[in-house]
């Protein structure tokens, strides 16, 4: 009896020990450091001076930074809504495809996501540039050229392009799991397709919707490459602000506060998602 207990302990340590050891040192400790840096004064060349202060947090409501936060939330929200609008019908269609086509359609969604993120952003510079494909097309139609690149629109296009697959996948698995009998029951009881969608399909797929929103909204907030390359640096988003605190302004505590607020948004959304899953689980 005692030896089996020992074997289990050894088994645990041999399998999970190295992995969790690594994660504790290189994930948990770094995150704890970010958390602790939020309450200290900045060092002159990066790092911190170990004097407690609440200053870093009050700077968040400085109008200068508040504008950045509000602007980022706005663009990330638009991106998330557009992704939802495009992804929901797509995921719904994929879920109803025959098995063979389903796999192909899903792989086709995932493929761009696994390619180089810079390349995918660069593709939009090629498309939207004043000499690019879109402008050449507009010119040929006699509509003249538009300033497409270096705008909020270009940023949203880039963010949507980067994260759309992350909206489609969770939606697909949520819709796939739905019991088709519920839809049938609804329509047999005389509900029109729109009514069935609003009162059966959508509420039951809400956990998937929220997962997708987490996967699109949070990285959109924290992205600094797309605002820089497609926004031309005109629009500063939270991601840019964080990058600058660490690599330019050398204000690590304020950068940590900003990073912490991104994590805060992430945790909040994950809680909403867990709440929605539980609710659906109870109803079903």
């Amino acid at each position: 009896m005692k030896s089996t207990v020992r074997a289990r302990v050894v088994g645990r340590l041999a399998t999970m020990g190295p992995g969790f050891g690594f994660l504790i040192v290189f994930l948990a400790v770094p995150l704890a450091l970010v958390l602790s840096y939020t309450v200290f004064r900045r060092g002159r060349f990066g790092g911190v001076v170990y004097e407690a202060t609440g200053e870093n947090f009050t700077r968040l409501i400085d109008p200068l930074y508040l504008d950045v936060v509000i602007g980022s939330v706005k663009l990330a929200t638009i991106t998330t809504l557009l992704a939802l609008l495009l992804a929901y019908p797509t995921a719904y269609m994929i879920a109803r495809l025959p098995a063979k086509w389903k796999v192909i359609a899903l792989v086709a969604v995932v493929l761009p996501f696994w390619t180089n993120f810079l390349i995918r952003t660069y593709a939009w510079i090629v498309l939207l540039n004043s000499e690019g494909l879109v402008n050449s097309g507009l010119d040929a139609l006699g509509l003249g050229k538009l300033e497409l690149l270096y705008s909020d629109g270009a940023i949203v296009a880039g963010l949507l392009y980067a994260y759309l697959p992350l909206m489609i996948l969770p939606l697909y698995s949520a819709i796939e799991r739905l019991d088709p009998q519920l839809r049938e029951a609804s329509s047999n009881l005389g509900a029109r397709p729109i009514r069935t969608f609003w009162s059966v399909t959508l509420p039951l797929s809400l956990p998937g919707v929220l997962t997708g929103c987490v996967f699109v909204f949070v990285p959109s907030l924290g992205n600094f490459v797309i605002p820089e390359l497609l926004g031309g640096g005109r629009r500063i988003m939270v991601g840019n602000l964080i990058r600058d605190q660490f690599l330019k302004a050398r204000d690590w505590p304020f950068g940590s506060v900003l990073a912490l607020s991104v994590i805060g948004v992430l945790v909040l959304l994950l809680f909403a998602q867990a709440w929605a899953s539980r609710r659906v689980g109870r109803d079903a």
Binding site: M16, G19, F20, L23, F26, L27, A28, V29, P30, L31, L33, V34, Y37, G46, G47, V214, V218, P219, L221, G222, N223, F224, G239, I242, R243, F246, W252, G255, S256, A259, V262, I263, L266, L270
Partner: peptide, 26 residues
């Protein structure tokens, strides 16, 4: 523990990046 094992996949890359930058400096 489940959450810890999947966390790096969900955590925004920028947060992990600055966490490690701080850690390496520390």
């Amino acid at each position: 523990l489940d959450a810890l094992s999947t966390m790096p996949a969900i955590l925004p890359d920028l947060v992990l990046a600055i966490g490690l930058l701080i850690f390496y400096a520390a």
